[in-house]
Computed example of a mutant assay.
Amino acid sequence: MHGRRNYKLSIFALVLAFIILSANLAGTALAESTLSWGSRGNEVNQLQQKLTDLGYNTYGIDGIFGKNTYSAVTSFQKARGLQADGIAGPATWAALKGGSNVYVLKSGDSLNSVAAKYGTTPQEIIRLNGLTSWVLNPGTRLVIPVSTPSRGGARYGEMADWWTVASQVFTIGTTATITDLDSGLTYRVVRKGGTNHADCQPLTAADTAKMKQAYGGSWSWTRHAILVNVNGRVFAASQNGMPHGGRSIYDNNFNGHFCIHFLNSRTHGTNRVDPAHQAAVHKAAGR
């Protein structure tokens, strides 16, 4: 009798442990449910946290999809070339996870040819974009899933302190090759100034075009995890993609400079560490 009772208690304990473990895993994975104005709960918390980490302020992580979250979602969608409808659906979640690009269909393109180019399937493109037909017109903007390379040392950069290491290697006047971690696109930049972080400019118009492509065709303040290669030494870093302030290169189609942050670097305006930039630095280091 006691043996049967103990057996039942053991089964109950195992089931309870499984339920708790499943709940914990669900809480740590990035949600993919379609969320919109009025949505509430843990998935909205995750959405707000991710947007905040990327520099889109939701003014609180409260699990309530209201005016501020809607504004942050639409700003993110515009920056990534998505339909700015304020709804966090499959395409928006894919972009939030850093696993998508935006591709504009050209004459002669098909879903099959685009899928083959990016190593995905037509069905996945259809799902992400909510398509109802395989026949699409040139000029159609498609969200394309991008497979993320496996985590390996060669994919990530050295997480070096800005003040004692990175600023001493990436000195003013030095040219570096940038690799956008998510898209894999590369372009050259030159550090033109900056004390708390590196103020940089694309070297040529071709480099500007590549950088803009990495941003989905639109400039934005979104933080991107990047690798900064300075004479063969590769650092984990973060950049924004918004031309601002002064410039000293006038034939690169970039009206100003942009910021590159490293570990422990600070903003120039507030002299504070920017959490979103630091999160991107850690991502670029594979942390």
Rank of each mutant, 00 (worst) to 15 (best):
V143C: 11
S147I: 10
F262G: 06
S75K: 14
H224V: 09
W93P: 02
R223G: 14
I144F: 05
T208V: 09
A26I: 00
V146Y: 01
L35E: 08
T179P: 01
L142A: 06
L25M: 14
K210H: 06
D109M: 15
D109V: 15
D251R: 11
Y156W: 02
G89K: 08
N253P: 04
K8I: 10
F254H: 05
P90Y: 06
A154D: 12
K78V: 03
Q46Y: 10
R80A: 12
V228C: 12
H2A: 12
S100P: 05
K50W: 10
N57Y: 11
A88R: 05
Q46D: 03
F76H: 03
S39P: 10
S33C: 04
N112W: 12
T171H: 06
S133E: 06
S133G: 05
G55E: 09
S147Q: 13
I226F: 01
N271S: 11
S167H: 07
K210F: 03
L227F: 04
L185P: 00
T132L: 07
T222A: 15
Q48T: 08
Q123D: 12
R233H: 08
R5Y: 04
Q168P: 00
A91L: 09
F235A: 07
W221R: 11
D199L: 08
Y187V: 03
A205T: 06
P138E: 05
R80H: 14
A88Y: 07
N271D: 13
G232Y: 06
